[in-house]
């Protein structure tokens, strides 16, 4: 039984109710993921940290089956007390108008980057508020309608998502430091220990399939060449499975429709070793029916770095 993290999560509730109090009505398991609902799985900035004068590109991983989607990207430089849930909203409430970033004035701190599938920005001004680094917010709004901006204008200005407009955000680190953070890199997925090289990998129905992921150690930050001590680096990896509906992979090693999908990866380098080794828990997948499946994998380094991979499977 896992104890520590689960138990810690209980603490706030202990301040709220006697220990035998209970939730009135449990969510149906499917609600943990809302498998029928569309969702944003990842937004990646490349690179996740830039210095003045540098450019960062943005791309996203969105699950919205059986429809074409449109996007609108916005840039917001938050005030010190603002975050991605109120940066644009506050700007509009202060009387700001959301216009193209190329036309904004010096007093504006939010604007529209683009309505393309990807976006990029180049920042030339000093680090805001005189610090060494600052978090710039890039907001992506995705819609199942043809024009995300016209459909979602009100949702964007109020920062309230609705069924046609999903709102998501990514922080870009804007700093003067020399060693900027890099994204981790997923080299490939493995199937029973072997790299998956096909665009669509064929697997057998009802077989236990062992999935793994290979991470490119060259992109793991802050692991010096010859450390004197063992150095660990922690990443988190999330699985999503789409065999007609979205599911997550839970800690028990079985694909279920609820529970956390996040696995912890420990990469370490022993003194004298030349290579970094990343341990990755075995993930067992047992397809329940034949057909097409898509597996999405998202890797995070907890410092803003993100990578993801999409792999098609044909279950026979």
């Amino acid at each position: 039984m896992k104890i520590s993290k689960k138990a810690y999560r209980f603490i706030p509730f202990l301040f709220l109710f006697l220990t035998v109090a209970c939730v009135g009505e449990d969510f149906p398991p499917s609600a943990e993921l809302n498998p029928e609902e569309p969702q944003v799985l990842a937004i990646k900035a490349e690179p996740p940290e830039i210095s003045p004068g540098e450019t960062a590109g943005f791309e996203s991983l969105v699950w919205w089956p059986e429809t074409d989607i449109s996007r609108v990207w916005l840039l917001c430089v938050p005030l010190p007390y603002e975050d991605l849930n109120n940066c644009v909203k506050n700007y509009v409430e202060r009387g700001g108008e959301l216009i193209d970033c190329q036309n904004i004035g010096s007093q504006d701190n939010a604007c529209i980057l683009t309505q393309d599938a990807t976006a990029s920005i180049q920042l030339d001004y000093p680090i805001p508020f005189g610090g060494e680094s600052y978090q710039i917010i890039v907001e992506m709004v995705v819609s199942d309608q043809e024009d995300a901006w016209s459909t979602c204008k009100e949702a964007i200005e109020q920062t309230i998502p609705n069924k046609n407009c999903l709102i998501s955000g990514k922080r870009l680190i804007y700093s003067n430091t020399e060693d900027n953070n890099l994204n981790p890199v997923i080299s490939y997925l493995t199937l029973d220990g072997s790299p998956i090289t096909e665009d669509t990998q064929v697997v057998n129905f009802s077989n236990d399939i062992v999935l793994g992921v290979k991470i490119d150690a060259d992109y793991i930050d802050e692991i010096p060449e010859n450390p004197e001590e063992e150095i660990k680096h922690y990443l988190e990896y999330s699985w999503y499975f789409d065999c007609g509906k979205m599911e997550r992979y839970d800690d028990t090693g079985e694909i279920t429709d609820f529970g956390t999908n996040t696995r912890e990866i420990i990469c370490k380098k022993q003194p004298g070793d030349s290579e970094v080794e990343c341990s990755f828990p075995q993930n067992y997948w047992k397809p329940e029916k034949a057909g097409n499946c898509v597996i999405y994998g998202v890797l995070r380094d907890n410092s803003g770095g993100i990578d993801y991979i999409v792999q098609n499977f044909l279950v026979e």
Partner: peptide
């Protein structure tokens, strides 16, 4: 009344 996806933490922020 809704949640905004925070791509850095893989969590939703309530609105």
């Amino acid at each position: 009344i809704g949640g905004i996806y925070d791509a850095d933490t893989d969590n939703y922020i309530g609105v």
